[in-house]
Nucleic acid binder design. Sequence first.
RNA 1: GGAGAGGUGGCAGAGUGGUCGAAUGCACUGGUCUUGAAAACCAGCGGUCCUUUAUCGGUCCCGUGGGUUCGAAUCCCACCCUCUCCGCCA
Length: 426
Amino acid sequence: MLDPQLLRNELEKVAAALSKRNMTLDTSSIQVLEEKRKAIQMKTEELQSLRNSKSKEIGALKSKGEDAQAVMDEVASIKAKLDESVSELDEIQIELNDILSGIPNIPHDSVPNGNTEDDNEEVRQWGEPKKFEFEVKDHVDLGEGLGLIDFETATKITGSRFVVMQGDIARLHRALIQFMLNTHSTEHGYQEINVPYLVNADSCKGTGQLPKFEEDLFHIKEHGLYLIPTAEVPVTNIVRDEIVNNDDLPKKFICHSPCFRSEAGSYGKDTRGMIRQHQFEKVEMVQLVKPETSYDVLEELTGHAENILKKLELPYRVVTLCGGDLGFSASKTYDIEVWLPGQNKYREISSCSNFEDFQARRMKARWRNPETNKPELLHTLNGSGLAVGRTLVAVMENYQNEDGSITIPEALRPYMNNQTTIEKQV
RNA sequence: GGAGAGGUGGCAGAGUGGUCGAAUGCACUGGUCUUGAAAACCAGCGGUCCUUUAUCGGUCCCGUGGGUUCGAAUCCCACCCUCUCCGCCA
């Protein structure tokens, strides 16, 4: 949520900033509502104040044993006006709130203009895509060739966009999780955390998945709960409705979790393989920080994700998302794209974002600034470190051998009993 | 799933219809004292929104949402959560 003050005082500036996202803000209707709100709120509070003081008078009179009927009649007429005023105010506030909660975050100045992912700006590249001396396979052919990845059975058990992994591929998948968690917690200073995978609606509102993107979530209606689309939701909501102590900042969490996404609207997109699934696993970095540090932290956090790819020796590039491609809650996002030989292109494997105070305002997540001694909004950031399924795909495709076996990256061997290759079992 | 108890400020804990945003203690902040610290003493100390350049002022908040009343932390209803006991269970 944007700062309502900003919308009041600098509406035109906000509208201009949002045009970078390729959206137009209906400023005139906001202005009209806002003026109405102001007038009615002032009137309402005046009436409330009057009612309160008169009621106290009644109390004082009665305690002295005097007759209070005249004042009571007076309050009755105030009350009628007040009720009307309150319901009018409620209506306007709901309307304004709906508008406000539907407005995305303002892009940072450094965010490039543009509408689609083609307009994203490459920041850097790392590593060289390997030249293969043979015809490369994608992870589906590799996995099915090894007999260790099985989409058909997953479809039988559940449906499309699910997968069953077995044997050494399942172990490699698990090894990746351990490797990522260990690296972030021991080398990058994150605290490991384990959280619920079902969350309530308030948590989804806090991080911005609700109310606008309900169709992307799996909803357990009987219990009013949602399957998490990312650990960002439960982890960031740890500080919802909290005032964090200055000494406890920054908070840095690393969390492995499954992620569930309905992928509504992506029919026909990435239908082959493990790239886009309804369920996948991810190791997520979350940081809750003081506002003045958040852009430095974004660089740092992106570096932490890159470090995983460097250790796995997987070529990648980093892009800055353009305004049109930026997520709803983010001010600035770097995507990290890993090289996939099977597709002969770079594909997103991590998304690192600074939300500034956008999520914090929705969540009422604050810290006490020792300089002002007042509660102030935190800044929230998160990034994948990394998407495990896609990392598995990248390892398989980049480390494939001509015979269909897969060499295990050095960094993962300690997690695989020092095994060096994955081969077809005979 | 059954039975009972309970949800008040950072924590503990009082408050059962009026001057209660809320006693008291602890914690915290500032000051006095001290070479320094501790102790003692004095003072301050929730959040929200509106208005305002700012102050002043006002609204709302005692789990959440409704209701009763001139007036609700206090009474009524629903829901949520926590604890104890029983049952079931990884």
